[in-house]
Amino acid sequence: MSLTLEQVQRIAHLARVEVSESEALATQGQLNGIFELIEQMQAVDTRGVEPMAHAQDLSQRLRDDAVTEADRRAAYQSVAPETEAGLYLVPKVIE
């Protein structure tokens, strides 16, 4: 299989990465090269094989319900691009 230019643009939009026409074209070529490599997997019969999502076969550990974090807004917002009145500012959100 190979990706079309439209597919490249669609996934770039899903990933919120702006790509120009020419970048999309170059990316298309590279991605198709990589997918050629990836396609080797398709020949393998994996029926009945349990997918492995983690490097360990363990279960989730749980924490007690307790407040352990103090207010550090000033420190956290000191690295923010734009804040006002304790809020992070972004271009207008339209619902």
Binding site: D65, A66, E69, D71, Y76, L87, Y88
Partner: peptide, 28 residues
């Protein structure tokens, strides 16, 4: 609960903006 589902920040209602958003909640 008194704390968040994946962090130890408080869930109390009505706090000043972003004073109950810890490093985990902010996705540092």
């Amino acid at each position: 609960t008194v704390s968040k589902i994946f962090s130890g920040a408080s869930t109390a209602f009505g706090a000043d903006a972003n004073t109950q958003a810890c490093a985990v909640d902010l996705a540092l």
